[in-house]
Design a protein around this nucleic acid. Sequence first.
DNA 1: CTGAAAGCGCTTACAG
DNA 2: CTGAAAGCGCTTACAG
Lengths: 362, 362
Amino acid sequence: MIIISKRFDILYKRGVILGITIKDIAKLAGVSTSTVSLVLSKKGYVSETTQTKVQKVIDEYNYRPLRAARQLASHLTGYIGFIISHVHLSRSEAFYTRILLGSELEARNYDASIILSTVGLDFSIPNEVPRFLKEKAVDGIIIAGSVREDLIQYIYQEGIPVVLIDFRINDLHLDNVFIDNRSGVRQAVEHLIQKNVERIGFVGGSFYHPSIQERFEGYQLAMEKGGLGDIARDKAFHFLENSETTAEIGEKGMAQVLTNVPDLEAVICVNDTTAMGCLQHLRKKKLHVPSDLAVIGFDDVNIAAVAHPPLTTIHVPKIEMGVTAIRLLIDRIAHPSQVHQTRLVPVELVIRESSLKNQNGQ
Amino acid sequence: MIIISKRFDILYKRGVILGITIKDIAKLAGVSTSTVSLVLSKKGYVSETTQTKVQKVIDEYNYRPLRAARQLASHLTGYIGFIISHVHLSRSEAFYTRILLGSELEARNYDASIILSTVGLDFSIPNEVPRFLKEKAVDGIIIAGSVREDLIQYIYQEGIPVVLIDFRINDLHLDNVFIDNRSGVRQAVEHLIQKNVERIGFVGGSFYHPSIQERFEGYQLAMEKGGLGDIARDKAFHFLENSETTAEIGEKGMAQVLTNVPDLEAVICVNDTTAMGCLQHLRKKKLHVPSDLAVIGFDDVNIAAVAHPPLTTIHVPKIEMGVTAIRLLIDRIAHPSQVHQTRLVPVELVIRESSLKNQNGQ
DNA sequence: CTGAAAGCGCTTACAG
DNA sequence: CTGAAAGCGCTTACAG
């Protein structure tokens, strides 16, 4: 609790802030508090006339039940914990941030609020897990992106309803919201093949994150399917460094693949950020995109559309992912023991200039 | 409240989730609940021996008081509402996001949690204000960046403790955390003048946001002080469009000022995002930065350091702003009627390549 | 320094 | 359909 002065405390108690209660409403409407409560929760069992009579008083006094009291009596908090790593929250692509936005918006539709908790890598379990976990202050939890596995293990063992977004840990069956990474990359590969572009490389990053891994696998699968299995299996065409996917990794990767394969025609990047690095490297090398080389990203974050040239990429519906996670979580809270569910959010190729090879790509 | 099935409800009540209470601890330690509560709140008045005895049981059972019960009894929630516009949360510069991160981290030091609420422009007051405002679910509120003025008016009238970050509304005396914009721009101007750069332009944006306005004023003041008043007052050197500060605005602004003043030597941008637009335009025009023209941004967001060339800018300590806001708010909650306070966070010029004119700038 | 007891503002069986 | 009453799990004067 916040440490407050005695003085404030007294003010508080004197009613400076304490407001109208359910008792007041009951008295004013000439009914019992139970009835008011029933009207409030819209659980039915109240006659039309009583209902309107009570509602009128509620509206008149703009009454809203005190959440804390409601929580205590009902054993439900109306709060959803949203856990995200410092790294993800701070990243500049507004990827996870938009997922958070989606969750926040959708939570309201269930009369719930989001309690945010960021986590780093350096906390101890169970002593320093997010506070709400130990105070039963949330009904369920959403985890966006990668966090330490033992945190998820802890939550799992505590039996708190949880949904993971764009992350998984093996052997643990939890509700998940995934990106359809394989489909996304397949669309990209097919788009290129259709233009008779075949010498297609891949620049990627950390395999710690499942999405990253799936994107590379998707590339290999789609290439194989398109009759380009040799390239799909030729390491000269691939750059995979097990680290955060930054623009620097993109630059480095582009440089390396280009050295290996001077007549490379296109590169698919694990995400838009690395694609920006590729563009950067190509600019330095005075190579023109897309006429010399096509570049395709993944995610469709803000920078993609304003890059030079505008980046062809796979659009990931970030807000919808946040929305979906809330719905899954609500469902899980209502049915704690049902079998775990997975939602695969669809993605779509957005064709901009960076891939318009052999087409006088504007 | 979240709508849940009867079945879940029953599980809940059966103790699947209900845990150990203060009563249990009291019994186990052989003291009264009051004593346990006193130990928990560390309010003193408990003998050393009782304290350790009780603490031992608390630790052994890993007991944590239920927040809702505590809230109801103490009239304090331990929650802080954080209000931010959809636009700010979604922006790609991780500016407000880092402020949020700072607040989240600092809140923990006061045993408080952050409840997030995003707002758009299209809500009605008082019916659609953030839920926590009407349910007395927070002890105080932080507003980061610009939001609708009538929302702030509403909060003010409700008497809820509030701190504004990087925003103000005239005539309303609230606690504020401001960026020292004038000092920042002054440092930039002095840096340029010191290199004998004098024909310095300014590219800016929306005057709706006070920081934006202050940065232009700071430019004029510093120019005046440096003996360049003529330029400070010459509209040909300035581009000020009343819209969101995007990279596009930067491109457009750079183009216009350069048309007006072909022998321009430097441009100071209202923020890094517009500076990126300027760089973009100069690249298109085949002008070299910094040898042809120096460019300086403001904010020091992620992209600044990795821009080409790396951008000289004013570093704004974003995390600290979030931290400061929490401290101000805690203080305000403790002393509701004290005179309002303003914290000016210091900023610092970070010299990178984009301003190293006349120096063989790498 | 410690305990018994009231009370915070709701919800929810239960009885009618 | 409606009301009286118990109870949720804490905190906090108050008395000793």
